[in-house]
Design a binder for these strands. Structure first.
Lengths: 238, 238
DNA sequence: CATTAACTGGAGTACTGCCTCCGGATCGCT
DNA sequence: AGCGATCCGGAGGCAGTACTCCAGTTAATG
């Protein structure tokens, strides 16, 4: 790349259009999920389709740009949860916040349940958040309130399930989603039951997220998935 | 319709092709879910696409014909579970069986999570099965092993979630699905936690299933799938 | 074996979404 | 205002899927 791939600032009209596209994208993704038609986004931004592609060469660029803030909220939620003293309250508060964010935005619902290569800034946010989540989990386990055979894959499974519920239940989303989350938390908090069957490996879940991403038109299927466990804490503590 | 819309028997080659199409459909649906391409089914049956459409005018006709037997297993599973004496074992056995059927057949995974058939024969099966399920639930509740605020919508939520997991996790499906089901059952069996948030209404869930069906290309949004038992040998006809 | 109704397959239409090309409009600077 | 660099938008190519039409083939029957 050239030394100054820090390209000169966009022309005024270009900036205006870019913002319009992002606003439209946030709307449309929230309504229809990440598989929304790019043409619809361009139309809602009152912009030609070419303009959209010029600014965001691929769907995941657009997704990335449209969701930076929301992903930041994810990090914030993790951090905020850390401030809660009771380990179980902290953990459940985080999980509930995540799933509520999903329920309010179908795009985010998709995003949290898949892996998307995005920009560096977002990656850093994720990494930090992930570390916080691991802490939340460890604390809750240590307090004997989170089942000891819990793994981060379980959280991912919940996020995927919740994403679907949100997608499918449309206007009934809040009730169904809250119900699902409450059930999941009750399950996570059981310490008196026999061990769960073995969880899928994090590699398997990475592949799964890749499939999801592919299905939503973001990233090629089978392409090297960032094993970082992506958006969500998918690290398998031993 | 004319009195004898009981059309004359198909010609030998037509019957052969019809069977080939059904066999191919079962394969392809199992692999890819209900949204599989009809052209692929025709190709696998080594039949022209027109032949498929002649025999099954719409996707839901094909789906219906391909899955009658599998849906019957749903009823059988409920009945078999009733024979188990321990109420909790009976309930969990039924749930597990359902979800395992889903894990083994992505088409069925879709089908069980959308809406049940309206064909009268199958409708009867469904009604009976549903009654059995209600019995299973009541028994388990009475025994104090199933949480008292459990409702049938919770089961549906699980089926939808499981369908997605099965869809997404591909080869890791068994592990992920079993894990999800085990967690759900642990949640269902909690009697020591505060009441869950209110469930979605069954009307809301019906709408949700309609959306799912529409997304899979079966039936208009909101209308149910009609299983065609028409010219299938009716086993255990009674 | 001849006749005919039933059946067939593939080409064709229609639609949708992704993505690119390029003539023309617009901006920003002098 | 004039001018070049930048940017725009819609037409159009490509691909995948649903679904239809029709000229040719094949099974059943006497």
């Amino acid at each position: 790349m050239r030394a100054h791939d820090q390209q000169r600032p966009l022309r005024a009209d270009a900036t205006r259009n870019r913002d319009a596209i992002l606003a439209a994208a946030r709307e449309v993704f929230a309504e229809h999920g990440l598989e929304a038609s790019l043409e619809e986004i361009a139309a809602r931004a009152r912009v030609g389709i070419a303009t959209l592609y010029r600014r965001f060469p691929s769907r995941q660029h657009l997704v990335g740009a449209a969701f930076v803030e929301k992903v930041a909220k994810y990090a914030e939620a993790a951090e905020a949860a850390l401030a809660i003293t009771d380990p179980w309250d902290a953990f459940t508060s985080f999980v509930r916040t995540m799933c509520e964010l999903q329920a309010g935005d179908r795009g985010l619902a998709d995003l949290l349940s898949m892996t998307l290569p995005t920009d560096e800034h977002v990656e850093r946010l994720r990494a930090v958040a992930h570390a916080h989540v691991v802490t939340l989990i460890d604390r809750a386990k240590a307090a004997g309130q989170l089942r000891s055979d819990f793994v981060t894959e379980d959280l991912l499974i919940l996020l995927i399930a919740n994403a679907t519920i949100v997608h499918v239940t449309q206007n009934a989303a809040p009730a169904a989603s809250r119900r699902l989350v409450a059930l999941a938390l009750d399950a996570f908090g059981r310490t008196d039951t026999p061990a769960l069957p073995p969880p899928p490996t994090s590699a398997e879940m990475a592949v799964a997220m890749g499939h999801l991403a592919a299905k939503r038109g973001c990233g090629a299927d089978g392409e090297a998935i960032r094993l970082d466990t992506g958006n969500l804490p998918v690290r398998n503590s031993g």
